[in-house]
């Protein structure tokens, strides 16, 4: 496991308490998991993706990540409609381990962008990790 100081946690994105990250890009929000989450899960072997067009509330489960010996649920940081899923992950789930920020998982069209503003910034997320 990485030490907290070794984690790659970019400044320009937001984080959820469930260790997802979210990044605004025009009128959509791109979502993935944080470096902490990919490190804790280990080698990811399978990503269960939602269908494009599905609608979830913030905090709802939208998919799962599997490592060899664990399953971890994915929770949507910002509610809305799924407008894109990263199909490359179907054949290459390791993209998330290689770089969890280029290895995005879904794009969502938010219902309420105000939810994004309630997510944690880098500093607050670091505090959360230290507390855990």
């Amino acid at each position: 496991m990485k030490e907290i100081k070794d984690l790659n946690l970019p400044d320009e994105i937001r984080y959820s308490k469930d260790h997802e990250w979210a990044k605004v890009d025009g009128d959509i929000v791109r979502v993935g998991i944080s470096d902490y989450a990919q490190d804790a899960l280990g080698d990811i072997v399978f990503v269960e993706l939602p269908e494009v067009g599905a609608v979830f509330k913030a905090g709802e489960e939208f998919g799962t990540l599997e490592s060899v010996k664990a399953v971890s649920e994915l929770y949507l940081p910002v509610g809305g409609e799924i407008v894109a899923v990263n199909m490359e992950l179907e054949d290459s789930p390791e993209l998330i381990n290689d770089n969890p920020y280029t290895g995005w998982i879904i794009e969502v069209k938010p219902g309420d962008i105000g939810e994004f503003d309630q997510l944690l910034d880098r500093h607050a997320y670091l505090e959360l990790l230290k507390a855990e």
Partner: peptide, 12 residues
Amino acid sequence: LSTREQHIRREK
């Protein structure tokens, strides 16, 4: 593919 199985996914 053990993640399908009870020792990992338990009730799911």
